[in-house]
């Protein structure tokens, strides 16, 4: 009897030990690369590669160089303009479309939903040549508005599905009673459903905002002149040339661009779970 007891006790201890071991090892694997990037941003010595350096001298010189000798601030501004406009336009369009497909039954609805589903699978970014030609013709190359529209369009199909999924989880009884009270289409949307969908709208806004920050392909391809570049393309230049690696500047620039995004991310991450599980899974 005692033998069995101690063996289950041992088992429990062992499984807890393994659990914590897993959590700690995974944490180290995540923290380590991030830590050395952050640290390199403040490292005074002339770096060629990131390594964890426990005896380094801290400095802000890298940031100073970044601001004075490169176009970093311009890139940052460009990225912000593109990201914010993408966010606003995309969230409005997606919210309206998602709401419609969740709440209204109308002719063509089913075909519309299938269209969104299929078109979402088309790797639009692979249509590079077409974007180039289109940009050439409507004078959109090297222009923010064109890139913004490409981002918005690419985000619509998938996010409309997620948005529709979220609206599906909001009970319709409220709509019904409002309608009986004489509320019109806009009032039901604006005063009843939008406030309830706020968590998902916040998530959508964050994702639409983060998209342009993470994209390299389209911005490198469609924005040509150095003063129009986004941060991703600009920073890549710091480390693209093997003979002239500006690793510390790259780290400093990366650190600065990541801070606002990480803060936003964690402010809004509470909403992710409901947004993802409602929208991303079965209706």
């Amino acid at each position: 009897m005692r033998g069995i007891l101690s063996s289950t006790k041992f088992n429990r201890f062992f499984s807890r030990f393994l659990t914590y071991l897993f959590l700690i090892v995974l944490s180290i694997i995540i923290i380590y690369p991030l830590l050395i990037t952050v640290q390199s941003a403040f490292n005074a010595s002339d770096l060629t590669a990131f390594t964890l350096d426990l005896h380094m001298h801290w400095t802000l010189a890298n940031f100073q160089q970044l601001f004075t000798q490169t176009l970093y601030l311009t890139w940052f501004k460009n990225t912000m303009i593109i990201a914010v406009s993408t966010m606003i336009i995309q969230v409005i369009i997606v919210t309206l479309a998602g709401y419609t497909y969740s709440r209204y039954r109308f002719k063509g609805r089913k075909n519309g939903l299938i269209f969104f589903l299929v078109i979402q699978m088309v790797p639009t970014m692979a249509a590079l040549t077409a974007y180039f030609v289109l940009g050439l013709i409507i004078n959109g190359l090297d222009q923010y508005w064109f890139l913004t529209m490409v981002y918005v369009g690419g985000g619509i199909p998938m996010n409309t599905w997620l948005m529709k999924g979220y609206f599906d989880t909001i009970p319709r009884d409220l709509d019904e009673s409002a309608r009986i009270d004489g509320a019109g289409h806009l009032r039901i949307l604006w005063q009843i459903n939008l406030p309830l969908a706020m968590p998902m709208i916040a998530v959508q806004a964050l994702w639409a905002f983060m998209g342009p920050f993470g994209d390299y392909l389209l911005s490198a391809f469609l924005l040509r002149s150095p003063e129009n570049m986004t941060v991703a393309v600009g920073l890549q230049q710091f480390i693209a040339d093997p003979t002239n690696q500006r690793v510390a500047m790259f780290a400093a620039g990366s650190f600065l661009i990541s801070i606002p995004i990480v803060i936003l991310f964690f402010l809004l991450q509470r909403n992710f779970q409901s947004g993802l599980t409602a929208g991303g899974t079965k209706g």
């Binding site: 479309a97 709401y99 609805r109 088309v122 639009t124 249509a127 529209m149 490409v150």
Partner: peptide, 23 residues
Amino acid sequence: PYLLTIPAYFVMLFVIVFPVLIT
């Protein structure tokens, strides 16, 4: 419902359908 979805279709027409056709 059509009015609300027109913006989505309009943008997708120019940024997805049209480039895909060209491609």
